[in-house]
């Protein structure tokens, strides 16, 4: 059994210690947001946040995650009460097929938690590891900028939730 903290909740999961976090999130905890894209750390579809850093969950075995705080898109808000990042992606309609989007949001979340006023150039450089095939990039950048603005005006509540 391995103990994990995901979106503020503790879980005990019964899987091999070499299991990549991605499969624990998706299959054990039934969380949909983190996606399988390459399993090689090349595309970013599986990106989650661990202790404030962006991590490829597909190449991160759970054996290293004891005591760490893992955040997924499910931890940013709900469909009823979307968080600023989610709200911004909806408002900008920043998706085509949308498959890469949760990974994009988590990587962006890491940047905006450090600097919600990140510039266009900083956003692009930061988002470099994540791939989109539909060509939604321009809207993704716009959504991240919007999310930054929303975060700057967001309530303390939201800040806590996305912590």
């Amino acid at each position: 059994m391995v103990a994990l903290t995901v979106n503020g909740q503790s879980h005990q999961v019964d899987v091999d210690p070499d299991t990549p976090l991605l499969y624990v999130l998706r299959d054990e905890l039934k969380l949909n947001a983190a996606k399988y894209g390459c399993g090689l750390g090349q595309c970013g579809a599986c990106t989650v946040m661990i202790d404030g850093e962006a991590v490829f969950s597909c190449v991160t075995p759970i054996v290293v995650l004891e005591g760490r705080n893992i955040t997924t898109v499910e931890g940013l808000g709900t469909i009823e009460a979307p968080g600023p990042m989610q709200q911004a992606f909806i408002e900008e309609q920043a998706a085509q097929c949308g498959y890469c989007i949760p990974g994009m949001m988590m990587r962006a979340q890491v940047l905006l938690q450090r600097d919600p006023a990140a510039s266009d150039e900083e956003i692009r450089a930061h988002m470099e590891p994540n791939l989109c095939r539909c060509g939604t990039h321009m809207r993704i950048v716009a959504a991240i900028k919007r999310a930054g603005k929303l975060m700057q005006t967001a309530s303390v509540d939201t800040a806590k939730r996305t912590g």
Binding site: L40, G41, E53, T60, E128, P129
Partner: peptide
């Protein structure tokens, strides 16, 4: 930091583990 992807060209990519692994690990 891994080996970041080169721009639009074939090249090795290795994911960095800065966020995944602690200093001790």
């Amino acid at each position: 930091y891994g080996l970041p992807a080169p721009e639009g060209e074939r090249g090795p990519i290795m994911p960095g583990f800065a966020g995944a692994l602690t200093d001790q690990q």
